[in-house]
């Protein structure tokens, strides 16, 4: 069973979300990295870009698959994790530290729409 930290929020498309001081940080879950296998490349979104809820903002690529990243909240992309260019494998190793991008959300209550750890666990178990 993959790790699902209790203090994070989740999307159905397997992104995790951490809120810190009005910014949200997004990565992919342990379950998602297990499904993908060895990650070889991360296509990052452009900093400064406006993104809609569930808008495509990047691609995570493994040897056998490529999976789109979706924005769990609408807002502006304020930062991306450039370190992933050289070490995409860090997503496999520490998925909850290897964040992908940060969003300044348009609306703060959007966080309420996301899943908590218990609800996300159900999503994973249902697969």
């Amino acid at each position: 069973m993959s790790e699902i930290p209790a203090d994070l929020k989740y999307s159905k498309s397997h992104e995790w979300v951490r809120e810190e001081g009005g910014m949200i940080t997004v990565g992919i879950t342990d379950h998602a990295q297990e499904l993908l296998g060895d990650i070889v490349f991360v296509e990052l979104p452009e900093v400064g870009g406006e993104i809609d809820l569930d808008g495509e903002c990047g691609v995570i690529e493994s040897v056998k698959a490529a999976s789109d990243l979706y924005a769990p909240m609408a807002g502006e992309i304020v930062e991306v994790n450039e370190a992933l260019a050289d070490s995409p494998e860090s997503i496999n190793e520490t998925p909850y530290d290897a964040w992908v991008f940060r969003i300044k959300p348009t609306s703060s209550d959007a966080l309420e729409q996301l899943l908590d750890a218990a609800a996300y666990t159900e999503v994973v178990e249902a697969e």
């Binding site: 070889v40 490349f41 690529e61 493994s62 040897v63 056998k64 698959a65 490529a66």
Partner: peptide, 9 residues
């Protein structure tokens, strides 16, 4: 880089 290709993407 097969993830670019039609059989995966």
């Amino acid at each position: 880089l097969q993830a670019r290709e039609q059989h995966i993407r």
